[in-house]
């Protein structure tokens, strides 16, 4: 009987270890998400709204999961350099200029992207700073 309890305990410890190892990445993602949310409130919410709902046909909502997925590699450039072209979001056309947020660091941008792509119905997982740095090199 004692042996069973012991082996069960060992097994439990090992599973816990494996489980916590797996979630290290998850913890990092959660950190990015939380920081991204704070940055969103400070830097994006004014125009894009509390619920990322945008403003009529002037400012696009940031809740179009398909747009976010399709243009994931462009998000960093849009945030950093602003936008001055027509885009289709939620099947609606938007053509107002978006101001550049050039003072944001790559890590800030990564955090904002993690927040946007993991809220409002999106669940795209982690996006790290290196990916943002690579994206920014390819900006038009």
């Amino acid at each position: 009987m004692r042996r069973y309890i012991l082996s069960a305990l060992v097994l439990l410890t090992i599973t816990t270890m494996i489980y916590s190892c797996q979630s290290a990445e998850q913890i990092k993602q959660d950190m990015y998400f939380a920081n991204g949310r704070d940055l969103y409130v400070k830097r994006c919410q004014n125009c894009h709204g509390q619920k990322a709902e945008g403003l009529a046909n002037l400012i696009p909502p940031l809740t179009d999961a398909r747009y976010l997925k399709k243009n994931k590699n462009k998000l960093a450039c849009i945030i950093k350099n602003g936008l001055n072209e027509k885009i289709i979001v939620n099947n609606r056309e938007f053509s107002e200029k978006m101001p550049a947020q050039s003072d944001l660091n790559d890590i800030d941008i990564a955090q904002i992207i993690v927040y946007l792509t993991n809220s409002n119905g999106s669940k795209q997982g982690m996006y790290n700073t290196e990916a943002v740095t690579a994206d920014l090199k390819k900006c038009k």
Partner: peptide
């Protein structure tokens, strides 16, 4: 119209 700071929120509320 090209205001990047407080106008969008003002007009969102006023709307």
């Amino acid at each position: 119209t090209s205001c990047p700071s407080i106008c969008p929120i003002m007009h969102r509320n006023l709307k």
